[in-house]
Design a binder for these strands. Sequence first.
DNA 1: ACCTGAACACCGTTCAAGT
DNA 2: ACCTGAACACCGTTCAAGT
Lengths: 221, 221
Amino acid sequence: LATRSPKRHTPRPALTRERVFRAAMAIADKEGLDAVTMRRLGQELGVEAMSLYHHVRSKDEILDGMADEFVAAIDEPAHPRDWKAAIRERAMAARALVRRHKWAPHLLASPRKLSPRMLHYEDWVLGRLLEGGLSCQMAHSAMHLIGSRTLGFTQELSGVGDDAEAAARKIFGSIDLAEYPAFKAILRGGVHHDEDLEFAFGLDLVLDGLERARDAEARTT
Amino acid sequence: LATRSPKRHTPRPALTRERVFRAAMAIADKEGLDAVTMRRLGQELGVEAMSLYHHVRSKDEILDGMADEFVAAIDEPAHPRDWKAAIRERAMAARALVRRHKWAPHLLASPRKLSPRMLHYEDWVLGRLLEGGLSCQMAHSAMHLIGSRTLGFTQELSGVGDDAEAAARKIFGSIDLAEYPAFKAILRGGVHHDEDLEFAFGLDLVLDGLERARDAEARTT
DNA sequence: ACCTGAACACCGTTCAAGT
DNA sequence: ACCTGAACACCGTTCAAGT
């Protein structure tokens, strides 16, 4: 009919999962993660809070979506010199992103659901480490160590805890390993997942590195 | 009078801040941090939720108290061989505690209020690093690096952000430096607080350490 | 198919009232 | 001084009803 409300002539873009995630990220950037509520999010999108449930199953799904979008934005370096430069450049890119999205480490530290994009990111790091000639076992420990350094969380600490081996099996039982070549390679290599050993490995690596840095500094001064 | 209720003969211990904190820790251990609500906490202590407000100002104060109690429980090593062993042993103690209190890194990552006990802990680490002969600047970076490794959070990431220098000044303006000798020493040494530089320092230390570990492994096999 | 209003069972917190 | 009941302004989520 001709008497349609004028609003209908400039229809707002249809609500999609991605638009919900992006709106949530914008709110969290400006006002913090606590400000991301269903009602506030609806307001930001010009819709009632309840409408959101047609696109996402729950608020947790929105938080997972935010984490996923964040990880997807960590650019791969274009022409890294070698494996160390590759990891270094991407870590710096991640850090630059974290400065804009301070809530990201918080969300990534306790994922409700395993994010495929997060797995791809970790698979990429693992790939560079293997390329650098690290053994499967060492590459595995190194991946955790770099992850904690880069994104500000320690997966093994916030992890599922007691039976890490079983948890890892469950995770990799539910995904398609063909999409994650580096994970596939180290699983075939038969890494064992000992959290205490990994922790000590990372700690000693840091302490020994500090001692060397001290000596290097003493030599140049 | 003789007609007192029988309950009065076995009076429950008086409610104190510490008892509130410990009850909160017990709930978080068993059911997770989300289960710690004022009503649930009151129930655990045999009291109405509202009574808690006579002992703590707010729920945030309870969360801070939990973090504080946690840090206080990280034992100092008795007879460490040297500075590296000292830091290593205490880090392992912290890690063992984290396994029991999985919520701790989460709380320590975003403290609402600076915990004196956390400062004492960091001051102790800093003291061992200076004892080990690290320069003020390097010891400062190292403290952050070890903190992130040990407790599973990256202070500089979750930190106040843009003007770290001003934030640091504000923190150390409000406390008594006499209680924190190592902090006092590095402040006198004139460290500058550049978060990007610190991040790169830690990252390169880890990457170089991995390269060395790879070469060491290759040599022994 | 998509959106909504009213409602439910929870939060943290305030405040006047009880002992 | 210490505890309480009722209430307020918020949450996430459900569900029957609208278009």
